[in-house]
Design a protein around this nucleic acid. Sequence first.
DNA 1: TCGCACTGCTAATCCGATTTAGCAACCTGA
DNA 2: TCAGGTTGCTAAATCGGATTAGCAGTGCGA
Lengths: 353, 353
Amino acid sequence: MSPRRVTLADVAKIAGVSPTTASLVLSGRGRELRISQDVEQRVLKAATELQYRPNIVSVGLRTGTTRTIGFISDTVATSRLAGDMIKGALEAARERGFMLFIGETEGDAELERLLLQAMHDRQVDGIILAAMYTRTIRVPKGMAAAPAVLLNALPRQPTPLPSVIPDEIEAGRVAARALLDAGHREGIHLIGAGPGRRNVPAGGSVAAVERLIGIREVLADAGVKPAGGHVCPDWQPEYGLAATRALLRKERPRALICFNDRVALGAYQALDDFGLKVPADVSVVSFDDHPIASWMRPQLTTVALPHFELGRKAVDVLFTEMGRDREDDGVEGEVHRVPMPIRLRESVTPPGT
Amino acid sequence: MSPRRVTLADVAKIAGVSPTTASLVLSGRGRELRISQDVEQRVLKAATELQYRPNIVSVGLRTGTTRTIGFISDTVATSRLAGDMIKGALEAARERGFMLFIGETEGDAELERLLLQAMHDRQVDGIILAAMYTRTIRVPKGMAAAPAVLLNALPRQPTPLPSVIPDEIEAGRVAARALLDAGHREGIHLIGAGPGRRNVPAGGSVAAVERLIGIREVLADAGVKPAGGHVCPDWQPEYGLAATRALLRKERPRALICFNDRVALGAYQALDDFGLKVPADVSVVSFDDHPIASWMRPQLTTVALPHFELGRKAVDVLFTEMGRDREDDGVEGEVHRVPMPIRLRESVTPPGT
DNA sequence: TCGCACTGCTAATCCGATTTAGCAACCTGA
DNA sequence: TCAGGTTGCTAAATCGGATTAGCAGTGCGA
């Protein structure tokens, strides 16, 4: 077995002082409480020699702060994209000496309650409640017990909780602009949602609604009318394939705005079936920057979901939340929007090249 | 602010007994220590009414057990596949009332040391050290301090630590058999590694070596000689594309064993370039069961990495490790191999159909 | 009637830190 | 010479439980 952990008492004994003094010195309050240089040095020396590190469990009991954050998601760990959210959160937390508890609810409210409890039982300093895809969620009761942030999610009812979400509206604008900038004005089809404001898949996906808003806004401002739109019940390759096939049986588009990369994958397959080349015959822009976007040929131009940055930002916001005086509630939770950068690759060219 | 947490003292007061008695009853030792039915009921009632739950931080300080496991990986959270490992571990841990600390080292040994420390400072009950892709790793010093398990990794030097890895040799056998069972005997090419035992990518990937062993064994037993093999420096689509193109410029294979799905994606693209159809002209088997395997057309038959099961198994093994009497070391760490199931899809048919 | 065992519960200690209150020893000025 | 202030450090309480030692009260046999 490993030798017993070094405790503050050990350091104090070696330094020949009381645990109190050792604690004072090590917490940097030695000067303030008039501990002599000599003693300070002895304590520091002893602590270094023994490689003393405070037991955080003990500190947690005494001070109530465990340097730990709870990260609860519906199913973040599963998706590669969302895994980056954890990664960003992990990194931001680590920079501050914090660790992350991870929990997955699988969409089960009871499980969510249990996880929240388990985390509170471990005295987490704050909680991040994350959704795998951007959507509105019902904020569970237990959230009030500690500082918290909603990640990739908006509260269904008004709460004082802040949220962090990708800026999907701007993403829609950026995607549409990419096509306009390349000179496209006609034969622009939407695959996954649209063309009307209301033509979105069921399920309350924020992405569908907001991307569509951005796209419509930019096209309208340029006096361009989308040639068509095709709602997909789910944004999976097979639906992208089916929708694009249906489209191609009727007409020849010049450009596609696919609502995500998996849909775009299906669209590529359909275009291939009809002997159409990307981007020579049809330009394609998409959203998410899923890993497959750079595996497809030609590589897909797509507006990236900044998962990593979302995770970081959530931790940042959580820390300001933790630093804030609670009680000053009544305030509506602020919404932080993280920019979505476009990845310019090979699937967009001017029409007729 | 939330009302102060309910403590054991609160329960004791309401029940009109001492905290000692309350503790005894709630830990189930009431009978054993002859607490009367009446008192037991009062305590239980009070605990239920107040919704008492013990503060795990406090318990951790007193008993040394925090019902917490540390999960450290090189970069697990990033990959969708590996994310399932966390998910499996999470689930198995939760079933036992344990939480997971997550940490990522990014391959940085210093960071790994820091994470190990941070976890020990929080008195984790055990540690899982995971690798994103199966390989041999150097076991860091700090591991001895608590029960630990290697996940998806083998120790470079002998250690008493158990490890959990996918059964890649059997996977190789299964893949080769899938082809043989379909009637293939000739024109079988390996993309990613082979044909010789030593023809593997640099980097110490266990998968390459073991898959190759299994494949060679089954083919040899059937008296079949692979028609060729093509090492890829990295198992990415572009290398699969390049290797398959090079092959196709020289000859027409009847079947490909791709060493993972990303390589297979590249191979599909090359076959398409040469006007060859999967599986009519060329059958393809692969490994990993990456999400793209079921997005590709035709859907890819592949031997799945059981990431979820690996995660679960790691926790199982860790728990037996935690239950074991330490000290009885000197024992070499056991290696647990988790079966890799084949996903039969559309990319394999008998030759000439 | 006394000693002893048993029943049923509680006081006290501990885990490893932080923090408050306070105690010697020395100094200073009247 | 002595009250009062400063300096430099420590004893003791605290956090919320688990655990050990022990204490009243009762019953029983001798």
